[in-house]
């Protein structure tokens, strides 16, 4: 699996909709342009939800999504 240089890690394991997306937004707001946030979630819906959020929201880009051992790992870059 590809590793990314994440500036921060957000752990939302155990949390359900809408919290993974909402907390990702709150965390990415704290980062600087170009930095990457790693999000660890156990909610299977987070794969579609975080992808859809990143596609539709200005200033963020979904770098990658990985799945393993029941944990969904998302990498989101702040682009502006």
């Amino acid at each position: 699996m590809t590793q990314y240089e994440a500036t921060e890690t957000l752990d939302v394991k155990g949390e359900n909709c809408p919290m993974p997306v909402v907390k990702t937004k709150q965390s990415i707001d704290q980062l600087a342009e170009g930095e990457i946030l790693e999000v660890l979630a156990t909610d299977p819906g987070s794969m579609s939800d975080l992808g859809g959020w990143a596609d539709t929201t200005d200033g963020v880009e979904l770098v990658d999504q990985q799945e393993g051992d029941g944990v969904y790992t998302h990498y989101v870059r702040k682009t502006e």
Binding site: C17, P18, Q26, W53
Partner: peptide, 11 residues
């Protein structure tokens, strides 16, 4: 509440 907080996350 779920839609409001999520839409806020979308900007």
């Amino acid at each position: 509440l779920i839609l409001a907080s999520t839409a806020a996350a979308f900007g």
